[in-house]
Write a protein that binds this DNA or RNA. Sequence first.
DNA 1: GTGGTCTAGACCACT
DNA 2: GTGGTCTAGACCACG
Lengths: 137, 137, 137, 137
Amino acid sequence: MIRIDQRSRVPIYEQIQQSVEELILTGIYTADDQLPSVRTLAADLAINPNTIQKAYHLMERQGLIYSLPGRGSFIALSADDLRSKRTPDVFANLDIVLNDLWQLRISENDVIVHVQESHAAFCNVAQKGGEPHDPAQ
Amino acid sequence: MIRIDQRSRVPIYEQIQQSVEELILTGIYTADDQLPSVRTLAADLAINPNTIQKAYHLMERQGLIYSLPGRGSFIALSADDLRSKRTPDVFANLDIVLNDLWQLRISENDVIVHVQESHAAFCNVAQKGGEPHDPAQ
Amino acid sequence: MIRIDQRSRVPIYEQIQQSVEELILTGIYTADDQLPSVRTLAADLAINPNTIQKAYHLMERQGLIYSLPGRGSFIALSADDLRSKRTPDVFANLDIVLNDLWQLRISENDVIVHVQESHAAFCNVAQKGGEPHDPAQ
Amino acid sequence: MIRIDQRSRVPIYEQIQQSVEELILTGIYTADDQLPSVRTLAADLAINPNTIQKAYHLMERQGLIYSLPGRGSFIALSADDLRSKRTPDVFANLDIVLNDLWQLRISENDVIVHVQESHAAFCNVAQKGGEPHDPAQ
DNA sequence: GTGGTCTAGACCACT
DNA sequence: GTGGTCTAGACCACG
């Protein structure tokens, strides 16, 4: 389930974390579910086990997962916990992007329309469960 | 006019580009205006001339400025040109952030309220920064 | 008549030479015609007289013009002389471009068609822009 | 495989790009092949690593290769991709040279003969694997 | 070991 | 004086 893009500039261990977070938010992983072992995942993704190890350590430090020596690694947060944790970050990113927009003299109204379209598109995709539908325009 | 934050993680040459873009958007720099020379700016910012050179080179390849060996470096775009060039990028960033928000189950309404607040804040700052006249505090 | 593009990366003195060569080839300048004086041209083009001086020296060294101290500078070559002088250079450039094309596996036929089209286009422009001559055959 | 001419006026980083483009076009490099590391190539060519770095950076911005920090640099385009990308540029160069030729009153027929000779010579060289030989006239 | 960044100082062609 | 190029050597994050 965990997917990696070898070509991306984002460090692999961060991609793993993003991937796990998405799986939690979409409900595929829930609290106390077991993650694949370091060796298994390393083999699956054809990636150095050290990198997987680093990703798991990172997620553990952030309270995203917990490891039981000799047993494996497990999801530590519910989707709701994760949401309340990540929300401030995402709003901070939104602020940055918005400031760029205001600086380019984009009107508030254009932005709101864009937000509404984005939301509609997202709901559309979520409903269909797979293939994204091209938003018109 | 160009300002740099030595402690920032953003590479200096990118900070310079951002700075120049802002100066164009705010109308301080317009097309064919001359930028400070590589050496002058290096001295002003207490930064190695090669780093400035790299920044200018970067901006030139992006069509933001043009350099004439032996004469200097000059703004290539008007504020309007820059706006129409940068707009697609910024909207792409907005889409990314918005998708994160939807995935966190933030409601469309909350986002729109946030957009409106951000816009109000920006207009407020712009007003106070532009006029030396302080109306009220 | 002599035109300069301040934004071009080609050195100004080379642009002047190119401009003079074109004026000879198009018949606007012929042998022993007088060129504008260094000062006049410098004023006309809003360029440092030293640069004009350098261009004239360059053209004189190449036998394109001759200078009579106290009298002025004059065209030294007829259009035909210039043609026979420049032909080898231009063919050398053609060879370089052609080799690029072969390396990209462009077919000989495609290139020949392109050559024919280019020639037709040039004749078309020359007719409309220059002396009114026989209509298309 | 990558070769450099230290005495050439062409900047080393451009020579490297040309070299890589040739290796792609001749099929020696294909998409996702790994290039020699910055340091390795610098040692091989007896050139400063920074110059290699600059060459790789240049190629990356042009979409010719992609670099993954800590992993290496890789070919981004297939030979066909490269061909379709470079073709417009080369034809633009051809147009410039052709216009010079028409201006010199070279006949269309002379040019076509030259094209045919150049093509024959190129095929000859390619066949013999590097030894140009003029067939008797 | 990999690429990314920055510094320091040099030489060149051009204006 | 300007920008363009190259060298030499350093530090960083990443794998």
